[in-house]
Amino acid sequence: MEVVVREYEAERDLAGAEAVDRMCDVGPSGAVTLFTDLLGDPVCRVRHSPYFLMLVAETAGPEKEIVGLIRGCVKTVTCDKKTPRSSSSAAAPVYTKAAYILGLRVSPNQRRMGIGLKLVEQMEKWFRSKGVEYAYMATDKDNEASRCLFIGRCGYSKFRTPSILVQPVFAHCLPISRAVAVVSLTADEAEGLYRGRFCTTEFFPRDIDAVLRNPLTLGTFVALPAGVHWPGIGRFLADPPESWALLSVWDSKSLFRLELRGAPLLWRGLAWTSRAVDRALPWLRIPSVPNLFRPFGGYFLYGLGGEGPAAAKLLRALCRHAHNMARAGGCGVVATEVSAGEPLVAGIPHWKMLSFAEDLWCIKRLAEDYSDGAVGDWTRSPPGGSIFVDPREV
């Protein structure tokens, strides 16, 4: 089959692109899969990045048909850090230009024909034209077709295995301990805190200001022990309290909706029963399972972090605060993604049956040097304790 790969054009390609997306659930064949409804905007998952592109694969000839598509975005992120000679100075981030591939889809009837490979190669060509040094992508560790394409044919290598943690949004607000004070930061305060404390975290976006000021960021919050007052960003950075925690909330619900398909009848029955009992006996405050078998939205938590012996406890309070925000916003879930070695993971409530313990990130080097000097090959670097997951790529 002769296929032409070209840039997506909304007016002529919308219906065809949506048709391909609808045919491609995410998940292993024969198991529960996750369907994504992009609400009429196939580019929504990359639109908020500094540079983005969507390509479509179209059959040649008079009866043209879109049979594949791919999305990509480019940004500058932290890949390493420079340790200062003086112990009194803080480490400085080393930035690189990185590109992210997501949403690769090929129509089921046209698979194993090289269409996916052609889409990836054309996207990488665009990446190189933007000066990208590294390209990376994420896939389910059990997605054999994706692994064979990217690792086997495109030269990508396994890089990181973060965890996707998902918590259902219950019908009731979750209580927050009176021993914790939740403070809402301004965008300027949030930027100062992230740059001051997290700029050397792997994948930290250099344009964090654009992320925090995006209308989809619903707020950045700090949790402090009760009785400790927010002193302002300058004094906080100079003399932080013994323990504190931080996170930001991103409104994914306005971009896309999700739906679980192929779930066993037992799962559906248990979820329905939990909701029925909760409606009949609301005073018991049973953690009922929302209906995830119909389209639902969610909030994504990003920039999670903190310091001190009580940081995990304070982060748990922030996650409860975000849950209550999601409940008011009509969401079905609250989700986040963290490094496999995240030290504060104990403070992130989640349900194992809805989460993914091991997502797979793969990376490929497209250029020889980092943008600010040759400091090594990022693809060979060991994982750190934390990663910064950009909500614009969720």
Rank of each mutant, 00 (worst) to 15 (best):
R153D: 12
K97T: 06
P241L: 08
L360Q: 11
K118H: 05
G234F: 14
A138L: 07
L216W: 15
C73S: 14
F388N: 00
R47F: 12
G330F: 05
C44Y: 14
P240G: 08
T220N: 04
K141R: 13
S184F: 09
L212V: 10
A19H: 03
D142N: 09
V5K: 03
A31C: 04
F236C: 01
L318C: 05
A226I: 08
S89E: 15
V338Y: 07
M123Y: 06
A335S: 13
I363R: 01
L237E: 03
R294L: 08
L53H: 13
L266Q: 07
E189S: 01
R327G: 09
L266C: 05
V94T: 12
V228G: 05
P282E: 00
R111N: 07
P162C: 06
R195K: 09
M325L: 09
T336F: 11
G303P: 08
R279W: 01
N109M: 00
L165K: 08
Y8S: 03
R178E: 15
W250M: 03
G68E: 14
P205K: 11
L260W: 11
A179E: 14
Q122A: 02
V166I: 10
F300N: 05
G347W: 10
W126L: 00
C319I: 10
E144Y: 13
S386W: 04
L270P: 04
M353N: 11
F204G: 07
K130E: 13
L301A: 02
L284P: 03
S386P: 02
A346P: 12
I363Y: 11
V345A: 08
E307H: 14
D142H: 12
P175I: 10
A138T: 15
K81E: 13
R206E: 14
V56T: 12
P205C: 09
T336R: 01
I151A: 09
R327D: 12
F300C: 01
A31K: 12
W351S: 06
L270S: 00
A326G: 02
G30D: 04
K97L: 09
A138W: 15
I348V: 13
K81M: 13
T83E: 11
M325W: 13
I70Y: 15
D209L: 11
A223G: 12
T201R: 13
G30N: 05
R392D: 00
V394W: 11
E58G: 02
M325P: 10
W244F: 06
R206M: 09
P290C: 00
R380L: 04
L185M: 02
G347I: 06
S243T: 09
K64T: 04
L38T: 12
S381A: 06
V183P: 07
S184T: 12
T83P: 06
P84E: 05
Y95E: 08
W244N: 05
I70A: 12
P225A: 10
E259I: 01
T36N: 05
R45W: 15
V338K: 01
L281I: 01
D239C: 06
F296W: 04
A276Q: 05
F170H: 15
E242P: 14
L119K: 06
F204Y: 15
A238S: 11
L292A: 02
